[in-house]
Design a protein around this nucleic acid. Structure first.
Lengths: 200, 200
DNA sequence: CCACTTATTGACTTTGCGGTCGAATTTGTT
DNA sequence: AACAAATTCGACCGCAAAGTCAATAAGTGG
């Protein structure tokens, strides 16, 4: 019980976890802007005021960092999916909430869908692809629901989903925090455009 | 004059050019599927039944291949842009033709928007970014035209354009030639979804 | 202030891959 | 057949960047 009450800044495990997260986040930002292979461990280290060797105190390999980046995003997305359960009058309404929240994740929280899945090997890749599939299936299910309740016009669900999910992914490439276009405006426009594109 | 009439299969320059193109195309396919950095020169060579060294008889560097891949796509897109000049009753109609043709490029001709611009350096990168900007501006101009003539609902043109261009790019990731979903179906659905999303 | 754990480092090793080169082989020409 | 030009190859080099490790500094509890 003693340890449990120590204030966070003086709790070593908490500090370690926080620093580890900082490493992941620093890397995630760099990966998003310049890609996985164009970002070196030295660069990540320097951006945190550390040496490369120190990084390996927090992570096992560069690949593990990339893996964690993906997991971070999918965790957040799972959370969003859970939060729209039961909400919304129909499939389309539910989807609008979901999509808006996804857009917010990208712009507000700096979380980006990474495309470098092929740089992951073995179990890492398998799990990330699994998580991606899970999200896709969840979104597809909502879309199918909307097609059934008549709020979304009938079409192949897969194409429908990948269309607007693709738009989201491309955000990584051109969105710059603090730029002319605020995250709110983007999210709003995206939701409208998505919604009008598929409403019946 | 003598040389000019030689049949193509016996004309060395033509053969050289054809082989060079084959190298670019083989690489383009691999880059699209597994990414630039996950594709080695040895792999490209073997996929053509050659040794790595032979590749360098046709190209100066791996970076040059990536550069040519980009140029190939932008040339095709410029062609599409030119082909819709004057066509279509209004901005939206023009855009639908354009977008459909873009989708066809991706699915039918296997041309893919590469995202690895950051792997290009110096002049290569500058030119590719220039070409990309040119296309974006052309598309944006059409969209703005549509907003003026009332066929497209008013919104920030940049967001509007990036939304549906992003969807196009994401095709690379999931579209598989010969799969359940034909290029025609995809192109058709994409055009509808794009159009309904922005029509006024 | 001492013993011990946690953090961090500089210097080194390893490795995968792009790129080069001279030689060999194939192809085309007279 | 002989020669030249176009192709292709095996073997090698260089380098950037991932990853290791022994040494050390910083922090903590007694």
């Amino acid at each position: 019980m003693a340890k449990a009450n120590i204030a966070q800044p003086f709790n070593r495990e908490v500090q370690y976890a926080a620093k580890r997260r900082a490493v992941i986040r620093a890397a995630a930002g760099a990966f998003r802007r310049r890609g996985y292979h164009n970002t070196s461990m030295v660069w990540i280290a320097k951006s945190l005021g550390l040496s490369k060797a120190a990084l390996y105190y927090y992570v096992k390999s560069k690949e593990e960092i990339l893996y964690e980046c993906h997991i971070m995003v999918y965790d957040a997305m799972d959370e969003v999916v859970k939060s729209v359960r039961g909400k919304g009058a129909n499939g389309l309404e539910k989807l609008k909430r979901l999509y808006g929240a996804f857009a917010a994740l990208m712009t507000r929280d700096g979380l980006a869908l990474l495309a470098d899945v092929d740089s992951l090997k073995g179990a890492f890749q398998t799990e990330v692809l699994g998580r991606r599939g899970k999200i896709e299936r969840a979104v597809t299910r909502i879309v199918e629901g909307g097609m059934k309740d008549g709020s979304i016009k009938k079409a192949d669900p897969k194409i429908t989903v990948f269309f607007f999910m693709g738009a989201l992914n491309w955000l990584n490439v051109w969105y710059e925090p603090g730029g002319r276009l605020s995250g709110e405006i983007i999210a709003e426009t995206f939701v409208t455009q998505m919604s009008d594109g598929i409403a019946s």
